[in-house]
Write a protein that binds this DNA or RNA. Structure first.
Lengths: 186, 186
DNA sequence: TGTCACATGTAACTGGTTACATGATTGC
DNA sequence: GCAATCATGTAACCAGTTACATGTGACA
């Protein structure tokens, strides 16, 4: 996972490991934590695989390494990005974060697939909720299981929220969609 | 984390490691995965610490171990449950799942604290969103960063969803709250 | 001159996974 | 008799964390 994040960051431009940590903390830090103890070994693996190259900065200061994306790394990133989205929150969000680099066709396909997966999941949860409600009606004190049962409702809330978000993405990524405050074709 | 889940499951009654795995998969399976490779060592640790006790079932079949909660385990679970909720989705949900065992006072306090944390977080994200919108207005093609920027909006959606859920919990856990289809004081 | 931010790296540990090994019991 | 499921456990592996070790450059 971290390896793909590094590749994604390097799409914007070359940078050092230290810079990557800062960038990660400030952007995807909300749902992904990177530590130097994982970052530097990952950079080592990527250079060994020749997905990225490294250059010792000589000009300003010593002991600073600038990493660059090699063609193989770029290809690997795009391949990973183009794979179907799974119902894994972190991976979903991470891929979406880099979706500006993915071609529109695959992107839309993946988002549509994901939307229908979410719909399925919402349906499944609603069915489970009904069964549980039935079971609950037959026991003496259903209030005793209020919190236990409530996590089901969390699941539904969550998937509905993701669905809204994905639909917003599908709409908003469409360049023919109305573009407030700006004309799309100047 | 897994250790507390085990303790929580044992609050309902004694069971075997195998049963625990099934129960976990069927209840909190949506946001927590347990494998035998982690479950059995956890049970070993818990028995070593004397938080749970184990009994070889002799009657029906051999080689089946039934675990029971010891007073120390119960106390540890309740202590963990009573700690403040953090903005960590899994831990939040896990604790709520077992909140039926926590006293009403602490529970309400924790939920209120969490709600105000969520409000803070929503405010913070809205501020960040405004800054980013300002920066975006100054670059030539903001559409190129559509997906990158969208994860911020995901964050806001997410926290708002959690806020709604928590408010539902605060309301619904109140026994004086209207109780559809049933009289609360028979 | 001290402290902070920059900058890289390693070692010990943690908490998990996957795959394997083993064997009993149930139901057809 | 054989397949499925019940039932427990271990070993190899993996990805990460924390804490430590080390050194540079800026600036008050």
């Amino acid at each position: 996972m971290l390896e793909y994040i590094i590749l994604g960051l390097l799409m914007e431009g070359n940078m050092s490991g230290y810079d990557m940590k800062k960038t990660i903390d400030l952007s995807i830090g909300m749902f992904y934590k990177a530590s130097f103890g994982s970052l530097y070994p990952a950079l080592k693996r990527l250079t060994d695989k020749e997905w990225v190259s490294v250059a010792e900065e000589e000009g300003s200061s010593k002991n600073k390494k600038i990493y660059s994306l090699l063609p193989e790394g770029r290809q690997q990133l795009l391949h990973w990005l183009g794979e179907p989205l799974t119902l894994n929150r972190n991976e979903f969000l991470l891929k979406v974060f880099f979706y500006d680099y993915l071609d529109e066709g695959t992107r839309n396909q993946r988002l549509e697939e994901y939307r229908s997966k979410l719909n399925q999941e919402i349906g499944r949860l609603q069915a489970v909720e009904q069964i549980v409600a039935g079971e609950l009606a037959e026991i003496p004190d259903p209030q005793k299981h209020f919190f236990r049962v409530s996590v089901l409702s969390y699941g539904k809330h969550f998937f509905k929220m993701e669905k809204e978000y994905v639909e917003q993405l599908i709409q908003g990524a469409d360049p023919n969609h109305e573009n407030p405050g700006q004309t799309s074709k100047p």
